[in-house]
Design a protein around this nucleic acid. Sequence first.
RNA 1: GGUGCCAUAGCUCAGUUGGUAGAGCAACGGACUGAAAAUCCGUGUGUCCCUGGUUCGAUUCCAGGUGGCACCA
Length: 306
Amino acid sequence: MPKTLVVLTGPTGIGKTSAAIKIARHFNTEIISADSRQIFKELSIGTAVPTKEELSVVKHHFIQTHSVTENYNASRYENDALQLLEQLFNNHEILLLAGGSMLYIDAVCKGIDIMPDVDPEIRASLKKQLETDGIESLRLQLKKLDPDYYITVDLKNPNRIIHALEICLMTGKPYSSFRTNPNKQRPFSILKFGLNCDRDILHTRINNRVDQMLREGLIDEAQGVYSQKQLNALNTVGYRELFAYFDGETTKEKAIELIKRNSRRYARKQLTWFRRDPEMNWFEPGQANEIIEFIESELNKHEQNR
RNA sequence: GGUGCCAUAGCUCAGUUGGUAGAGCAACGGACUGAAAAUCCGUGUGUCCCUGGUUCGAUUCCAGGUGGCACCA
């Protein structure tokens, strides 16, 4: 019987945490979080990390294990998660990868290309170039250094151009030469589940959850990391809107409205990404039992084919 | 009960000297490989309250109705 990684994902606020715990308990296994923000120990209310009780019921990995001051990213996550999976599969037939970070999930399931780590100084200088000379100067530089990528890249998206230039400048080779689209083979099979529900219901859940976060002390939590607001890890829904309020750029009420709106938009963006994945099996948030049945029937199919 | 004003997108409201309509916000769709809760691109989604009348043609003008608001009783 092959080792199986069960992936559970869906938009923010849909109810992944409780469904994941039900599924993990049923299979007596552990949860590998695929959440690019819950990984930071300074953030808990605004990222809706599982409660202490939830964490005590099922062992979770990658929850509040790193500091916002670290440069964490999808590639590091791929390496860390694969290493952990290899270890945990020694004792488990099934493991559960649960979270909403689209790229992190793809990094584990399909892999991303191997590239050098970005030098923060090069990034900073390219950012400065963007500010002073404009995006056109970055485009021209990219056209010279990587004409192939220049043709396919979204020329209006500064982050994409900057990253390509970073790699070109650091390696002396075109960024596109690293982009081999690996689709790496994994030593386990993968079953993907997406949670979704009626959009109005999702929006209500998201809005209510933001109100709940505020009651739990989100503003104090944001205040606690306010001095580090320039860090990428804090360029996060729920925090940056409050930073704008702390800066006096907006009112508290407007900041709260923006947190809700941006959470809704984030959920939509997640759904756009997940929808295009043909391997995704869609369920409603209350259907943990149906998902469990689905997993068991898939495992049985494997048994019969042996 | 009477008089006046209003009724247009999910919301707040423009507008059409009569040729079926547009802003803001909200919403929706998409891209995505080392920043991904990031970054970027795209889209008006409409019984112009209802029923009649005038008109080649009514969301626009007229009458009645319905609902809301204000004032007078």
